[in-house]
Design a protein around this nucleic acid. Structure first.
Length: 269
DNA sequence: ATGGCGTATGGAATACGA
């Protein structure tokens, strides 16, 4: 029996404000699972009813007032829910679930890694230190997770690791998200955990690939000064099941858009 | 021109994003 599963990840920059385009996305793409970041919504105010009406009956959230917040919506039942706190900051930046795929549980981690502020120096910018500490804690913790099982790690990881993941490698070398200290640590986290960068399995390393375009550009599409901040990592046992990934760049041009586009991954086993 | 904007909070101006 063949089983097919579609998982999407999207930094939505306020789930309540963005409900019209979330519903549009769910209707058009019909992913089995959607992982949202930056929901900016206290748990008590989360729009459960609208999302259940859209066919996503299974919803796990880790939210807080004003900032951050993640949510995982699913057509399939979700079990083994875990919401881990990192850096003892009290931030809502992670939720993990199991979803049934091909007759066994598939672990799905949904992450929102700290942006890191403006100055790439932890001595003068504590937010940058927090970002590095967060990634180091991710690395240590994920080592303890069972990496010999099917698993996916998605989210806004706030690092664009490769030269063609940004519009200008040279101009962004000192800009938070693409500094060598971040990109090297990012690769260390990924490789230590045995994760595969699924998006780059389908796009050659010398081709540009972005998921985020600033609100500040007069014409984001014309300027096209993007970065790949959102990622889909898969464990090695799941590697052969990834059929394709895509960035729905169109969504950046929808009405009242997020500054991030959704990333979609297709699995078959 | 990588911040030129956008969002939450709270009810104006500030913090934060990346």
């Amino acid at each position: 029996m063949t089983d097919r599963l579609t998982i999407a990840t999207w930094n939505i920059n306020s789930v309540r404000l963005r409900m019209p385009i979330v519903e549009k996305f769910l209707a058009e793409v019909q992913p089995d699972v959607l992982c949202l970041q930056e929901t900016k919504c206290p748990d008590a105010n989360f729009p459960f009813n609208s999302l259940r009406k859209a066919g996503y009956e299974h919803i796990e959230i880790n939210g807080q007032k004003g900032y951050h917040g993640v949510a995982t919506l699913s057509k399939r039942p979700l079990t083994n829910v875990e919401k881990r706190e990192f850096c003892e900051m009290g931030d809502s930046r992670h939720v993990a679930v199991d979803v049934p795929f091909n007759g066994q549980p598939l672990r799905i981690h949904n992450f929102y890694v700290p942006a890191g502020g403006d100055e790439p120096d932890r001595e003068i910018n504590p937010k940058f230190g927090h970002k590095l500490d967060f990634m180091n804690e991710m690395k240590a913790w994920l080592q303890g997770e069972e990496t010999d099982k099917p698993a996916v790690l998605v989210g806004d990881l706030n690092v664009a690791p490769y030269e063609e993941d940004v519009w200008s490698h040279k101009k962004l070398l000192k800009v938070v998200s693409h500094t060598p200290v971040e990109t090297e640590l990012f690769e260390d986290v990924r490789e230590t955990g045995g994760w595969i960068d699924a998006m780059r399995q389908f796009v050659p390393m010398d081709e540009k690939l972005y998921t985020w375009w600033s609100y500040r550009a007069k014409d984001w599409a014309a300027a096209n000064k993007g970065r790949r901040l959102d990622h889909v990592w898969v464990s090695k046992p799941l590697g052969s099941a990834v059929q394709a990934t895509s960035v729905l760049g169109d969504a950046r041009g929808w009405e009242k858009p997020s500054d991030h586009a959704p990333v979609i991954a297709f699995f078959e086993a």
